[in-house]
Amino acid sequence: MQQLLTIKLRHFLPNKTVTFPAFIFAVIALMAAMSSTKEPSGLDTSSLEKPRKDSIESVKAFMQVYQVLMSPRCMNCHPSGDVPLQGEDSHLHAMQPQRGKDGRGLYAMKCANCHQAANTPGLHMPPGNPNWHMPPADMKMVFQGRTPHQLAKQLIHPAQNGHKSREQLLAHAADALVIASWNPGEGRTPPPLSQEEFAKAWVKWIKKGAYAPAEK
């Protein structure tokens, strides 16, 4: 699965020597809410260039972001169905816990019944975080099966991104549950980029205009 994903991504990933007319024509309008220049707290963006729209750079950055979001560490809790995924191969969670209304499970199968505040030590043991949950039922924020184009559009659309403003979206890279992906517990591979690289690409994608890659 992991390998397959990498191969597929090669089609999307911009290569230095290639130009991107398709991307340019495919630019999407930036949401009004995202025009604010206020920096989110807790995110060091001082090294980044000043916000300036640049669809090529933005799309390029998003393709890095996409690799991370589609990795098991992110996608497993953003499934297309109502049961989270598990493992490096993103199979259905064995005991089929349900999303529940608030994304925290149902009845005796609530996320926190197994997922502790921290990773439980040992191979195959439940990873943990104090805020372990899935997106809620009214805002599923599905990653599984989304193309880069679809996912980018979804991420910037407040009706699909959890009503996040641009600031909130920028801040999301520093969310504790997102960061937990880089401390996945024994036997699990972290996302393909480092946390810093991811944060950088994330911010860059948004600040350069939050463009979506072309629909294939």
């Binding site: 005991m95 089929q96 816990p97 149902l106 009845y107 005796a108 199968m109 019944n113």
Partner: peptide
Amino acid sequence: EDIDQAMAGN
């Protein structure tokens, strides 16, 4: 269905 969803962890 509710029962199946609730009891699948046991």
